[in-house]
């Protein structure tokens, strides 16, 4: 009988081996480093950590990272929904190409995306030249950071919502129409609530990703302290100064903020699922 004391009895072999491999690799590559980070933080002490974090430059960087990630993710929430809806429901020229291209931000290295966006939107770039006579500057401003974060967060909402839209039963929309509802009413009251859980999941993934993003942002950001300096960059700067304590403090703050964001979104999701009942 192959029944480990860890697992319920199963006739299939390999629990020990597969579980062992999983836990070892997980520990070495993920858990130990995170533990080292937390341990180092504990060594510094809460008071000192707080003192580092409350420095104006660091607070500005954390606030910027959070603000920009939130703004970009909200944009992606709306745009991603529109995109997923168009891809599933409409037939138009280039649809399949766009569908395949949605994942470009996953496949394209972030550094490449960063320099490409900068080349386009810098004042001398193709789009920058068009926009600068209008007084709009994108590269080297907070707008540039949004742009980069919109780029890397784009696929998340689309890819989580798309399959849910595909599975909507058209009968439900027809039922709404036979009951006298106008199309906008159906979209708002019937379709949108059905998509809410998936929208939130996509939003959470995009938010987590863009809050910690580094590669695509640093080229287009301009990196001016207090203005366009994101928190991950500040970690890199502190590390280059061998100021490990400050880097740890910022790192821990980022970790806490991402967990807090994910927990909040999870809570909203549980709440909305409960409202929806047995879906």
């Amino acid at each position: 009988m192959r029944a480990g004391y860890l697992s319920a009895p199963s006739p299939l072999p390999g629990f020990g081996l597969s579980f062992g491999i999983t836990i070892s690799i997980l520990s070495i590559t993920v858990l130990l480093p995170i533990a080292a980070l937390v341990g180092h933080g504990l060594g510094i002490g809460a008071a000192d950590l707080w003192e580092v974090i409350s420095a104006r430059r660091i607070r500005a960087a954390l606030a910027l990272s959070f603000r920009a990630a939130l703004a970009a993710s909200v944009f992606n929430l709306v745009f991603g929904l529109a995109l997923a809806w168009a891809l599933v429901r409409y037939r138009f020229w280039g649809r399949r190409l766009i569908d395949a291209a949605i994942d470009l931000p996953f496949a394209l290295p972030t550094a490449v995306a960063g320099i490409a966006l900068t080349a386009l939107y810098a004042p001398s770039g193709v789009f920058g030249q068009l926009l600068s006579p209008l007084g709009i500057q994108i590269a080297y401003t907070e707008t540039g950071i949004w742009l980069a974060l919109i780029f890397i967060g784009l696929p998340f909402v689309v890819r989580t919502v798309q399959p849910v839209i595909e599975e909507i039963d058209r009968e439900v929309e027809e039922a709404s129409a036979t009951l006298g509802a106008r199309r906008t009413y159906t979209l708002r009251r019937v379709i949108l609530p059905m998509l809410t859980p998936a929208l939130l999941t996509g939003f959470a993934l995009a938010l987590a990703r863009s809050f910690g993003e580094y590669g695509s942002v640093i080229f287009i950001a301009g990196n001016l302290p207090f203005q366009t300096e994101i928190a991950p960059l500040l970690i890199v700067i502190r590390l280059e100064e061998y100021n490990y304590d400050a880097a740890t403090a910022i790192g821990l703050a980022m970790l806490l903020i991402s967990f807090a964001m994910l927990l909040t979104i999870n809570a909203i999701q549980i709440w909305s699922r409960r409202r929806i009942g047995n879906v």
Partner: peptide, 21 residues
């Protein structure tokens, strides 16, 4: 239009709105 006809329609699989009571 469907809305103007005001025909009560019962669908084969009922098409109830799952997220509503």
């Amino acid at each position: 239009s469907v809305q103007e006809r005001r025909a009560g329609f019962v669908f084969q699989h009922y098409a109830l709105f799952r997220h509503m009571t």
